[in-house]
Design a protein around this nucleic acid. Structure first.
Lengths: 232, 232
DNA sequence: ATTACAGTGTGGTTAGACCACAGTGGTAGG
DNA sequence: CCTACCACTGTGGTCTAACCACACTGTAAT
């Protein structure tokens, strides 16, 4: 077993045992190195891996943002991993889109009416009406979809959904330039968002799921990404 | 931007541009360090991250298994990430089980009859009848479920499904000790597997999906893991 | 009381050395 | 001629020891 894996194992055990919890601080790299009788290099390699997994965040200096603290951001980490695998041509973009449709329509169908996430989603829609440019619109759009997914109450589904979107974010960003008429598309997307949210709040899960599927497939299709519809 | 991120960016570009492909070899760590004008340490940190992502495999010595080569194993990488997040208590096991049910029943419903993966699945079932102990049975079981997921033809879904299973593999392995009667459970699981495969081969996707959902939820429930049924 | 600044501890980076490993190819012995 | 051995080479794995930038803290000078 390689040295840095030993460090990883030790840290994972600290987490499992509850000695390290969310928001907690890891010992300094030098301290861990001495405690585990390994070099600081090996400790750093382990920390890097945890950072890539979205389990910790490392910050220099001193104070609240300093040191290596435990966080919980599986979404961005999974997203980076998927993005790299897309780069190797091993994961087709169409499969990612299809999976996103699957997860997000499932979430829309099971969204719990009344949870805070839905209120946040509604507020995001209002902000999107006033979005000054494409980029800020897309950023709000991402948050809206995440909020919608969270309303189903399954953190794994919402994390995976966020990561799928993140993995092809670059594509989406580039492809908005290919759209014939952004203003028209933007208006359509806003209307679709409101329809989806209305269906969810109306307890019509089936309709919400259909609308979400059409919404996502429609966007990627218009943007020129094969969506492999796979009709029900 | 930190140095190792620069290296990551460079490697990702090589992958995107097709200069590095699956099975290809990265330059040696010392060569990359010189080429990018960074230290070998930074190169190594980048390689570690890619290794954790399942994008690359590093091997010492010389010959076919030596050097750092590009692979495509998103499943185990995503699994490790999820496992760590489970350790932080951020991802409940129940959510993982629920997501697995979601993905796997979707795959069962859409499995393409006649693909090689189904033939492999059938062969695995035969091997499971002759499995000498629990561990080898569980290993074959894992491969059966992956093969089934692959039959749907969505590599993202099968990778995620495999990672979800892997994330709670330890739990499953420990919990088999809690089962009242392993032989009975094992027989039941085998029968359920054959029923699922029969439904798939009979083009009865709906039934296959139902059977898969019941199969998975039943196992975890019996093993004592909350499965949060979320009835349809 | 305010300001300036040295002190302290954090992660970030580097250079250089040594190790174990696994093929390669030459060489000495049969 | 063939075989067995062994030094050589290049790979990743590990370690040490230093230095840097950063951000806060406490102290001292104003």
């Amino acid at each position: 077993m390689r040295t840095h894996e030993l460090v990883l194992q030790w840290i994972e055990k600290q987490l499992s045992d509850g000695d390290l919890t969310l928001g907690g601080r890891l010992p300094g790299e030098r301290a861990m190195a001495e405690q585990l009788q390994v070099s600081r290099t090996s400790v750093r390699e382990a920390v890097r891996i945890l950072e890539a997994m979205g389990v910790v965040r490392a910050g220099v200096g001193s104070g609240k943002d300093a040191g290596t603290v435990v966080i919980a951001e599986p979404g961005s980490a999974l997203g980076s991993t998927l993005r790299l695998h897309v780069a190797t041509r091993h994961l087709p973009v169409a499969d990612i889109v299809e999976t996103r449709v699957l997860l997000e329509s499932w979430a829309a169908e099971r969204a719990h009416v009344g949870v805070p996430a839905l209120a946040e989603a509604a507020e995001l829609l209002d902000q999107m009406d006033a979005a000054p440019d494409i980029d800020s619109f897309l950023a709000l759009d991402a948050r809206f979809h995440v909020a919608l997914a969270q309303a189903a109450g399954n953190s794994v589904v919402s994390a995976m959904m966020a990561s799928l979107r993140g993995a092809i974010e670059n594509y989406a960003g580039e492809l908005t330039g290919n759209l014939p008429d952004w203003n028209a598309t933007c208006s359509r997307l806003r209307a679709e968002h409101r329809a989806i949210l209305a269906a969810v709040n109306n307890n019509d899960g089936g309709k919400a799921a259909e609308l979400v599927a059409a919404h996502i497939q429609g966007f990627y299709k218009e943007a020129g990404v094969g969506s492999n519809p796979s009709p029900k």
